[in-house]
Design a protein around this nucleic acid. Structure first.
Length: 317
DNA sequence: AACCACTCCAACCGCGTGATG
DNA sequence: GCATCACGCGGTTGGAGTGGT
């Protein structure tokens, strides 16, 4: 049996709201409130609208103090920061932006911010590929010249499974119920990408290799094969509150975000910072399962606001 | 002027969840 | 425990607006 419809669809009007309908709904709610029952409300006031439609119209358009369009740069930064932290939880993001609705922010992200960020990502990826091609031969020479002692000091898994990346140690921190993969600026300022880490530390039995927990890379094979870049963004979580010692490592990420939000914002960008791109950030991905329990997430990141505050601290402003 | 492609955003849809009986 | 209902959320759609040819 399918779900029962919320209203008699044959007798409800759909499409754009007329000024008369707006006035009727607004006047009633301002005088009486919603009465806690949106489904019954349209009948009470003689509107041939679905209760859900009334609710949406009120929340997204008629409600007092709603702001439309004209997102400021600061709001851009907040949205980007929170999206990176918690994904497409638009209602939570909207709660941090007074006067903005989740629908507005969602539209703004999908039509503008995402393109803006991904456009910059592509540019930087192209630049990065050029640099990598130019330096690959040099790296190969360096690698071959390294002594056996140097490799002996590295974790066994990296040396055995991924010699190319071995000299550039990742930081991958299992966090009990929520596993978070974070990035670090290695001593040589290279970013270790989750794609590369996952490719050598994930297997079909979900047994993460190296020191990672068993659930750490669940679903990453799907990620590698199927997901698009913007989906990668949605799956990215960065934490900070619970691991203060990671701040320096997170700084690399936030510097990247800052660079992308506004290349000219903040302090001058060093050559090392310019190495970081959304390509790297995109690939710092883990399964959505890892953050499916938002309550748990909140326990580890006590409030969303604190995440933003930390983002601000790391230079997004 | 006419056509087309693209962007933007209001509104819709279906699902998950919690409340209630 | 189960069924039903309403709410809230995120994803998607459709049409108006805009710019290019």
């Amino acid at each position: 049996m399918g779900r029962a419809p919320c209203c008699d669809k044959a007798n409800v009007k759909k499409g754009p709201w007329s000024p008369e309908e707006d006035a009727t709904l607004k006047a009633y709610i301002e005088k009486h409130g919603t009465g806690g029952n949106w489904i019954a409300l349209p009948q009470k006031i003689g509107l041939k609208r679905c209760g859900k439609s009334c609710r949406l119209r009120w929340l997204n358009y008629l409600r007092p103090n709603i702001k439309h369009g004209g997102f400021s740069e600061e709001e851009d930064n907040i949205i980007c920061s929170l999206y990176i932290s918690i994904g497409s939880r638009w209602s939570i993001i909207a709660a941090q932006l007074p006067g903005r609705t989740d629908n507005d922010i969602k539209n703004y992200w999908n039509t503008r911010l995402k393109k803006k960020l991904l456009g910059k990502q592509r540019k930087q990826q192209q630049a990065q590929q050029s640099r990598r091609a130019a330096s690959s031969l040099k790296q190969e020479m360096i690698k071959r010249s390294e002594s056996a002692e140097n490799f002996a000091n590295l974790p066994v898994g990296f040396v055995n499974q991924n010699p190319y990346w071995a000299p550039e140690l990742p930081v991958a921190v299992p966090m009990n119920s929520i596993d978070v993969l974070t990035c670090t600026s290695a001593p040589n300022n290279n970013i270790y990408a989750a794609d590369q880490f996952a490719s050598t530390h994930y297997d079909a039995n979900n047994n993460g290799g190296g020191s990672s927990s068993p659930t750490m890379f669940q679903g990453l094979d799907d990620h590698n094969n199927n997901l698009q870049a913007d989906h990668h963004l949605s799956e990215l979580v960065v934490y900070g509150n619970n691991f203060p010692h990671q701040h320096q490592q997170l700084d690399g990420f936030y510097q990247a975000a800052k660079t992308l939000n506004n290349g000219s914002t903040g302090t001058s960008t060093t050559s090392a910072e310019s190495e970081i791109s959304w390509g790297d950030i995109n690939s710092l991905v883990y399964s959505t399962q890892m953050v499916s329990d938002y309550e748990t997430c909140q326990q580890r990141m006590p409030t969303v606001h604190s995440v933003f505050a930390e983002s601000t601290y790391f230079g997004l402003k």
